[in-house]
Nucleic acid binder design. Structure first.
Lengths: 232, 232
DNA sequence: TTATTAATTGTCGTTTTGACAATTAATAAT
DNA sequence: ATTATTAATTGTCAAAACGACAATTAATAA
């Protein structure tokens, strides 16, 4: 009969794929690894799951420590558990992907943890299976963003439709008709138009919008169709 | 500095939510637990992740052992890792949900493992957080089935549209217009009409269909809209 | 031959979609 | 001051998808 005592025990870690948007391009936040093996190589931000915390707790803790941010969008992706994925000792890692407003990120932490933002399409090779994690996260981000209004999480409180438009194009790596896009986005009923305009980058200026938080949280589970000609 | 050696180690398990369809109702397969604690209580089928296997491997092994089936639909759901979820020792469990053709299930295994099929809406209380796992799996099944043609996995090779119709209604716990349903299902182009008819249960008989495997695998990632008036 | 039953095919107005064009509000140039 | 320029915004329209609803068909039983 199977008993607990005879079973092998493993290390359990979390790794976070942190996405941000600088107004032009999709970026991810990487850190220089601080322990052996592969010390000083680029990796995702991660850590071991402590004795008194759940994996979700651990991911939030790591994120807080390395970005200064709390209560950000964080979603469990999948577990990575090939027996030999860590050469030192068997470690299973729970992958999370996170969407943050890049401007809220506390830049002084760059120094503390040797963190750095990279263009998603121009990033260094990462340790272990972290490259696969990034690829999976990107795919999942695309999938979710096509159905649910999550990309707002990467924009400041006040944003314009052109900003949102560029972000959608970045995430999906495709061109989207501006006219149809703004109609579709406004028809969700999730945006509240503000009186103020953003004048940087255009003569006419683009109206700021903010999220209707109430409707956003009420409808965060609803299926939308935010991408034209959608084929995954 | 954080080192591997100082970190706590945990047991890692898998638990499978196995869905089946008997032609009328959605069912799940449960087993009587064979080890302490909570021995002889109903639980999901699960097991510890062995030293030389990934969690996916472990889930497949458990499923093979307890149902006799290989190569069935199996999808990672999420990890369950609250520190106190197992009273004996900290154990993290990866939840999987699986869709099988209930008729392929090898019934003699009922005796070997004290397994039993239960109506999804009339099941016993389960141990630990397994009740939550079932609730999560049900939600995820609904979500995925609304977008991707996965419910075929619970039907035999030859099936009729009325059978599929009942299954969709069961999964979504709602009535669906038969006329619109069959139009929508056939318009996916995934079904091949056979010459043979199923004569049980109706005078006219319903044509058998089979899945166009080629298109099915090519389009398994595509977004469909298989549920009318969809609001999650 | 007719009644019955469930499967199947059909109708049609409404809504959504997406390709494409025109207008507008500002600033910069003349 | 007038005009050119630029990007944001609003508009048009045909095709497709959607969903409420009805009629027909293929079999068996009466």
């Amino acid at each position: 009969m199977i008993e607990y005592s005879r079973q092998p025990h493993y290390l359990v870690a979390v790794d976070c794929i942190v996405f941000g948007f600088d107004g032009e391009h999709l970026k991810i936040l990487l850190v220089k690894r601080g322990l052996e093996p592969e010390i000083n190589k680029w990796s995702l931000m991660g850590g071991f799951v402590g004795a008194n915390e759940s994996p979700d707790d651990a991911a939030n803790r790591v994120l807080k420590k390395m970005t200064g941010l709390e209560g950000v969008y964080l979603e469990q992706m999948q577990i990575y558990g090939e027996p030999d994925r860590d050469p030192i000792e068997r470690t299973l890692s729970v992958g999370y992907f996170s969407l943050i407003d890049i401007h809220k990120y506390e830049a002084q932490l760059n120094d503390d943890y040797e963190a750095e933002w990279f263009l998603i399409n121009d990033r260094p090779k990462l340790i272990f299976d972290h490259n696969q994690m990034v690829a999976d996260a990107r795919k999942k981000l695309r999938y979710k963003a096509a159905l649910h209004p999550i990309l707002f999480e990467m924009l400041p409180k006040k944003f314009t439709i052109p900003q949102l438009h560029i972000l959608f194009e970045e995430v999906n790596d495709t061109k989207i008709d501006t006219r149809n896009f703004s109609r579709k986005i406004t028809s969700t009923g999730l945006l509240i138009k503000l009186a103020e305009k953003d004048r940087t980058g255009s003569k006419k200026g683009a109206f700021y919008f903010k999220l209707d938080k109430k409707k956003y949280h009420a409808n965060s589970q609803a299926f939308l169709n935010l991408m034209p000609n959608l084929k995954v």
